[in-house]
Simulated assay, not measured.
Amino acid sequence: MRTLIVEDEKKLADALAFLAKKQNIDFDIAYDGDTGWMLAKKGIYDVIVLDIMLPGIDGLEILRRIRENRMSTPVLLLTARDSIADRVKGLDLGADDYLVKPFATQELFARIRSLYRRISKDYSNDMLKVSNVEFLSDSQVMKISDIEIKLSIKEAQLMEMFMRAPKRTFSRDYILDKIWGYDSDVSENNIEIYIHYLRKKLENKTSVKIVTVRGVGYTLKEK
């Protein structure tokens, strides 16, 4: 689970990052709003934790830009105890949750895990279904109506990612990180090639399609 925390209290941010390792949460840190937005817009994070009061761009503006750019990454806001108006505005802008300072670190990590589970649901079986498309992760087979299509490893990884979170927009950086690995030297052309392969397999056979969201990435939708 890769998480971005944008928090200008350096000691707090560093302490959270240290403790997060024991929770199997990988934290990147930004200590100001400008750096926070620069990292957030890469679209490589599973969850973003945003303090509202930040030097530079404030947390609400970062949140507004995230949603304006059609990024569906879950966002948790950190707010002051008396900032009810900010909490309301944050929820209206598309925040998924908020936590009032001071908070218990265990509660923060629990909320992060809860947000993560929303986008990577723990299915009780290996069969995923969207419309008339089924995906069997253990055998890497995509089934459209009664037709079974064997997928390559990368095709299967991409299809599983899309089908576990239909309608979510995945950035190219996120896909490279999740499918090929953050340190891989694979280019974005590889993504386009495999997206093309999957589109050909879905073409004229189903109401499901992989849509390019210009400037952001890809999403799975019903036609």
Score class of each variant (00 low, 15 high):
Ile153Asp: 13
Lys154Cys: 13
Asn189Gln: 08
Ile147Arg: 11
Ser120Cys: 12
Leu108Cys: 08
Leu115Thr: 04
Leu91Ile: 13
Ala80Trp: 08
Leu77Val: 14
Pro102Trp: 11
Gly90Ile: 02
Tyr194Val: 11
Arg87His: 01
Asn189Val: 03
Ile193Asp: 13
His196Cys: 12
Ala85Phe: 11
Ile179Asp: 04
Met142Phe: 06
Leu158Cys: 01
Asp82His: 12
Phe170Gln: 00
Met161Pro: 00
Leu91His: 04
Gln106Ala: 15
Ala104Tyr: 13
Trp180Ala: 06
Asp97Ser: 11
Ile179Ser: 01
Glu188Arg: 11
Phe162Trp: 00
Lys200Ala: 14
Met161Phe: 00
Ser184Lys: 07
Asp82Val: 15
Tyr182Phe: 13
Arg111Met: 12
Leu115Ile: 05
Ser207Met: 08
Asp82Tyr: 13
Lys178Trp: 04
Asn132Gln: 08
Leu158Val: 01
Val186Thr: 10
Phe103Cys: 08
Lys167Leu: 14
Asp185Cys: 09
Leu108Ala: 06
Asp122Tyr: 11
Glu148Cys: 09
Asp183Lys: 14
Ser137Arg: 06
Leu151His: 06
Ser114His: 10
Ser207Lys: 07
Gly90Cys: 05
His196Met: 12
Ile119Thr: 12
Asn132Pro: 03
Ala156Asn: 08
Leu202Asn: 04
Tyr123Ile: 04
Leu136Met: 09
Met142Glu: 00
Val186Lys: 14
Phe162Gln: 00
Met161Trp: 00
Val100Leu: 01
Asn204Tyr: 09
Leu202Cys: 02
Ser131Thr: 07
Val133Leu: 10
Met163Tyr: 02
Leu202Gly: 04
Glu134His: 09
Lys154Gly: 03
Val133Lys: 01
Arg172Ile: 09
Asp138Val: 12
Lys89Gln: 09
Ser187Thr: 15
Ile193Phe: 10
Asp126Ala: 13
Trp180Pro: 00
Leu151Tyr: 02
Ser120Val: 10
Pro102Asn: 12
Asn190Cys: 07
Gly94Phe: 06
Ser184Gln: 05
Lys129Met: 12
Phe162Asn: 01
Ile179Asn: 00
Gln140Lys: 15
Ala80Pro: 05
Glu160Arg: 14
Lys205His: 10
Val141Ala: 02
Tyr197Trp: 05
Val88Ser: 02
Met163Ile: 01
Ile149Gln: 05
Ala80Phe: 13
Ser114Arg: 12
Lys154Arg: 12
Ser131Asp: 15
Gly90Phe: 06
Lys121Ala: 13
Ile149Val: 10
